[in-house]
Computed example of a mutant assay.
Amino acid sequence: MGGAAGGTTTADTRGETQRPDPGGAPAPAAPGRLKRLRLRAAGFARRLRPRRPARTGMLILTLVAAAGVVGFGVWALYASTWLRVERVTVDGTRELTADQVRSAAGVPMGEPLAAVDTDAVASRVTEALTRVRSVAVEREWPHGISLTVTERTPELLIPKPGEKGTFTEVDAEGVRYAEVRTRPRGVPLLTLDLADHPNNQRFGRERLRAEAVHIVTGLPEGVREDTRVVRVRSYDSVTLELTRGRTVVWGSGESGRQKAEVLTALMKAEPDATHFDVSVPTAPAAADE
């Protein structure tokens, strides 16, 4: 038959791929490709869709709750009567009393605890009480302020001119901080015998006092306990007067550690000596005068 010989059978077209006719309309898209295009369009539409009212409402409620918590906290700290100063405790005092420290601190009772300026409190204490070297100010919730005081320790005493029996205490930093009428036990007396000496024009009294403190704080423990007077005639002429009539020519404050070690060995080697000279530590001397 002519149709069977010159045309294409149905069975022959099943195994071939359709190609677009160059002169006609494009071939229809495959079903799988159409499905993918539909899914992409649906996803794009979902992204453009506005958020659900339920999610927006939940976000608003969360923000309102957070603002409420913050506002309540601020009110509780500063406006309520719950967290107010009701007591001020003091620790660490030796010579001072707790009432003296509280008075100098000036912590306002009844003020919100969070509003207390702890730095200002510490400054008031150290400015009003020179005996205080430092003070730690801390809040003790819900109603307290604690003051932990560190008092200065006297290393030397300076006789007050014109007032017999009155002394000024000097600490390890060379700070003159308090006057006492009873001489503390074990604290040496500083005597400045500043005659006409060339070095005394170069070094002032403050510098010489600082050198004396430096010497005393570096003494061996036993020697320090026995020292009664530190006599300064110039920067390089310092003498220690000890118990039992003993004296130590120290010289200047230089090489203090070496001098302390030499003096300790010299006192052990010469227990009956009353005069020691370590001003030149490489050539020490001891004598019984």
Rank of each mutant, 00 (worst) to 15 (best):
G3Q: 11
G3W: 14
A4T: 12
A5L: 15
G6N: 09
T9W: 11
T9A: 14
D12I: 09
T17V: 14
D21F: 03
P22A: 00
G23Y: 15
G23P: 01
A30E: 13
L39Y: 08
A41E: 12
A42Y: 06
A42I: 11
F44V: 15
F44N: 09
A45Q: 08
R47Q: 13
L48E: 11
L48D: 09
P50T: 08
P50V: 11
R51I: 05
A54W: 11
T56Y: 11
T56E: 14
G57M: 13
M58N: 12
I60L: 14
T62W: 11
L63P: 01
V64E: 01
V64L: 14
A65F: 10
G68D: 01
G73R: 07
W75G: 04
A76T: 12
Y78D: 06
W82Y: 12
W82Q: 13
G92H: 06
A98Y: 01
Q100W: 03
Q100V: 03
V101A: 02
R102E: 09
S103I: 12
S103V: 12
A104F: 08
A105M: 07
A105L: 03
A105E: 05
G110P: 00
E111Y: 09
V116A: 06
D117S: 07
T118H: 03
S123W: 01
V125R: 06
T126W: 05
E127V: 10
A128E: 13
T130G: 15
S134M: 06
A136G: 13
V137C: 04
E140L: 11
E140H: 09
P142D: 08
P142F: 02
G144N: 03
S146V: 09
T148W: 04
V149S: 02
T150G: 00
E151H: 00
R152C: 02
P154K: 00
E155K: 04
L156D: 05
L157E: 04
T166K: 06
T166H: 07
E169A: 10
A172S: 13
E173Y: 11
V175W: 06
R176D: 01
V180P: 04
P184D: 01
R185M: 10
L190K: 02
A195S: 11
H197S: 06
Q201D: 15
R205M: 09
R205K: 14
L208G: 08
H214A: 14
G218Y: 01
L219N: 03
L219R: 03
E221C: 02
E221K: 10
V223E: 01
V223T: 12
E225R: 15
V230F: 05
R231N: 10
V232H: 00
R233D: 13
S234F: 06
Y235I: 05
D236E: 10
D236F: 05
S237E: 15
T239C: 04
G245E: 08
G245Q: 04
V248S: 01
V248N: 00
G251H: 05
G256M: 11
K259D: 05
E261V: 10
V262F: 07
A265K: 12
L266I: 05
E270K: 12
F276D: 04
D277T: 00
A283G: 10
A283P: 04
A285Y: 09
D288T: 15
D288N: 11
